[in-house]
Nucleic acid binder design. Structure first.
Lengths: 363, 363
DNA sequence: TTGTAAGCGTTATCAT
DNA sequence: ATGATAACGCTTACAA
């Protein structure tokens, strides 16, 4: 159920609540449309109309109202409109992992797109699945119109929690779908195939798959694609080494360092994301004395800015965030516009291969 | 004044608005406290009390209400409370430059802190000063309780715009202050001094200051501190080379590349942020054939994750984001709790020197 | 402890 | 074109 109780325990909230428990000690009351109406010598409706384009109002009246509003410093209040219409024009954006530049950039683009669509972003940062439930309840209590999330929705429980809100949900790179849930996915599997083909052309003999966390379905799809692609080049599946990371630089570094101890020397690496790939590049040099691309070819995913930094010069897949965000907005638009029940759609956007030095050398 | 007009033009907004212009075709009405009251056979106030900890209600009644609420799927609506109290418990967070991992991480921490204080984040991403004005009007129309911004508030115009909102504002690393505006700053000037001292110990003879955009007051303060620190080591000011960047990796790279053409070879660099420092390190190697720290000692600012990546191993100043965020929460708390007029305070948090390889070598 | 009723600031409807 | 009025869903003062 609702954890409104937990909410009440929060320090600032309690303080504010206590402060305004009675009407007597109310703060500076904001200027309302009544005040403007009185000042302009018109009705409250006239004020409303002055601020609603397309409503029938004479230029003279509008002038009077706007003048009065300006002098009083009136700022329309959208809260009552939310009560009346049931729409808040706020979208809950649930994110996590901002330490990955990819997600940071994606959020930036998403926020911009939503703003341009006249929607507000009610942001919810989530560290783990545990906080999600209570977070959702809070968002919902603000009567958000929809939810957009870049969390890789892995667990069935989360999907169910989202579905139960009876609110349009748009995900990025989520595999689970359900009623009310739409998703925009990068063509993860296809990119895995492309990666294997490219590395194959560069003479791959001892491929390595550097996987992201297993709960990340996008990572799993990339791995499956890569595995199939490796087979397609004629290398038996058994020769493909798989190493587990957790999408961080350190996990990429450590994974390679572990390999060194096991005496495994890959000559072609596909990493589930760029951060791990960067870690791998550094570990190869420091722990194995291997240089990229001379000794090892490496590819990542996400095309984060650091992939283009000269020390890494990493071939990567660009998720085409702009396109994905645009698609997400379409899905959102559709879901918000439909009256007849929950929408559930899936979009696939091809990732664009960005070739850089890490796969350039012929060996 | 308000650009509510512009808001009305936004596509999604218009569509939703049109769709619910009349009461007839209203959507699935949400479950209200009235519904719960009816189902539980109690009054509406009883429902309200059941969800308000500390209010006088019998255990039996509360049970009945909660049961009815659960079976109906009732979710309390906070919107009416906003109208009644005038407090929304929403804080407008105005940000930009998320492509810098430092700001991304800062946002993450801030969002977490606000959530833990029971405040919601109404996010506003701003590309430039132009969007800010209209953005603010929108935020205000949602009756936010305060604004927190990591934008380096440079222009006097922005400060004035913020002051006029008559809303508590908390900034990070802003120099301009005014009524209603509080700010938490890193000890930029002090860090500049420390940088010069450290580089001086490493034999600095030809110092270089890699500046951020001139509108960034934090960068200016760092530069002033460094300049003074350089003088303190006995090097005449005229020997200090200043180069202009814009806080990006590319600008750091280009700045060094330009120096090469001018035949200038620094032996100690202090960069206004880590991104530029990374660019500088790569340019030194690629364009000048200089290696860090053997030929050049380098320091940055922000201690972004990439500073710890092995390819850079960059000495940096950690802004202690956790502390700064904690301070910001205190300032916010204070501003929200005060009834007697606008608050305006400034906090300084010392940056912590993180020594890494880029300044380690004795040359 | 519980119920009744007023009120928050706006917008849609209806009457003028 | 304009004004009066009801309604949105909840909280709180007050009465019982």
């Amino acid at each position: 159920m609702c954890d409104i109780a937990a909410w009440h325990d929060c320090t600032v909230a309690v303080r504010l609540r206590a402060k305004h428990a009675t009407w007597e000690n109310a703060i500076i009351r904001a200027v309302t449309s009544i005040d403007v109406a009185r000042a302009a010598g018109v009705s409250q409706s006239a004020v409303s109309r002055a601020f609603s384009p397309g409503s029938s109002i004479s230029a003279r009246t509008k002038q009077k109202v706007l003048a009065a509003a300006a002098s009083l410093g009136y700022r329309p209040n959208r809260i009552p409109a939310i009560m009346l219409s049931g729409r808040s024009f706020m979208v809950g954006v649930v994110i996590g992992g901002l330490e990955n530049p990819f997600y940071a950039t994606a959020l930036e683009r998403l926020a911009t797109a939503l703003r341009e669509s006249g929607l507000q972003v009610l942001l919810m940062h989530v560290d783990d699945a545990l906080t999600l439930d209570s977070a959702l309840d809070r968002l919902v209590s603000y009567r958000i119109d929809a939810i957009v999330t870049s969390l890789a929705i892995g667990s069935k429980a989360v999907v169910q929690a989202l579905s139960q809100l009876r609110l349009p949900v748009v995900c990025f790179n989520s595999s689970h779908v359900g009623p009310w849930i739409s998703t925009v996915n990068s063509n993860n599997h296809g990119a895995g195939l492309v990666a294997a083909r490219l590395l194959g052309r560069h003479g791959m003999q001892r491929p390595l798959w550097l996987a992201g966390p297993s709960r990340n379905s996008a990572s799993r799809a990339r791995g499956r694609g890569f595995c199939q692609g490796v087979r397609d080049t004629g290398i038996p599946s058994a020769r493909l080494v798989r190493v587990q990371g957790n999408d961080t630089y350190d996990s990429g570094y450590d994974a390679i360092a572990r390999l060194q101890k096991q005496g495994i020397r890959p000559d072609a690496i596909f990493s589930s994301n760029d951060m791990m790939a960067c870690g791998a590049i550094d570990a190869l040099r420091e722990c194995m004395g291997l240089h990229c691309p001379h000794d090892v070819a490496i590819m990542g995913y996400d095309n984060i800015p650091q992939a283009a930094w000269r020390s890494y010069d990493l071939t990567s897949f660009d998720q085409q965030t702009d396109q994905m965000v645009a698609r997400a907005m379409q899905l959102l638009d559709e879901a918000l516009g439909t009256q007849d029940g929950p929408v559930s759609r899936t979009c696939i956007v091809d990732a664009q291969l960005i070739e850089r030095g890490s796969t350039r050398a012929a060996r």
